[in-house]
Design a protein around this nucleic acid. Sequence first.
DNA 1: TCGCGATTTAGAATTATTCTAAATCCACTT
DNA 2: AAGTGGATTTAGAATAATTCTAAATCGCGA
Lengths: 143, 143
Amino acid sequence: MDSGKEKEGGGALTPQRQAVLRVVRESEEHLTAAEIFTRAQKLLPKISYATVYNSLRYLKETGLLGEITFGNAASRYDRETARHDHAICTACGKLLDFDLAETVSLMKAAARRSRFKPESIHLTLVGLCPDCSDKPDGKRRKR
Amino acid sequence: MDSGKEKEGGGALTPQRQAVLRVVRESEEHLTAAEIFTRAQKLLPKISYATVYNSLRYLKETGLLGEITFGNAASRYDRETARHDHAICTACGKLLDFDLAETVSLMKAAARRSRFKPESIHLTLVGLCPDCSDKPDGKRRKR
DNA sequence: TCGCGATTTAGAATTATTCTAAATCCACTT
DNA sequence: AAGTGGATTTAGAATAATTCTAAATCGCGA
């Protein structure tokens, strides 16, 4: 089929793409494109902002990482690519991954009700993270 | 209680705010701010774009309408303010409201799992609407 | 009528993201 | 070893959505 090293699905995992992927994989948090750019520059000082976006698009399309959007905030990128749910804190902005088996069965119910042919389902819990619900009026760091 | 006409929660339902509210309420679809601006101009020719945004924020905060965000697309506004779910078509962009009772019980499960203090839950089904799943390769009008 | 807080307005500013066009890179040929 | 072509990267401009700013305007109560 193909050479077996560089090209497979539709493109190569270039050094820039590897750097972006590594940044996302090595972060505990869900970074924005801007944060990824800053960190990727430490690995590849000449990388450009556009390349970060290009790479993120490529990595998303090839299923190597996921994108999370919520509200009008900047997208965040997720090293976890299996389907899963999110919780977002209204006070500090923390974003947590978790997985509920029930969500998938809800997808079927939603498909039946809406008459849509289902492709995926997005569930986001909005509330206060443990830290913020302890200190009732904590420093709400805007992110 | 209060004067009974203009001010209640924290502000007045000015003609501009009324116009924006009316536009959203009278549309079957979920409009974007730009679409709302265009239609509101027909009611109040001098209304400004900023006022549409200001009004939308006000109406959202006072619970008179809802905002829907998905992906990196522009926000859409929803006359339905009770909690409900959404389905979005990947081919034509159609956005549908529906309501599943199970979503609320999922909120409790999600809260338990994530340890967040729940405030609300957002469920979005992504897939093909009935029209688009009929004609397999239909004219995917970008919205 | 005056004064005042709330609201509106026009346009500038900001933020996130995408686009453009020119350079670079690399594997493959010659 | 030079030449080609496609994919990728780069810098910066462009676009799109939304928010901000500062100056008018509105409407009510003193």
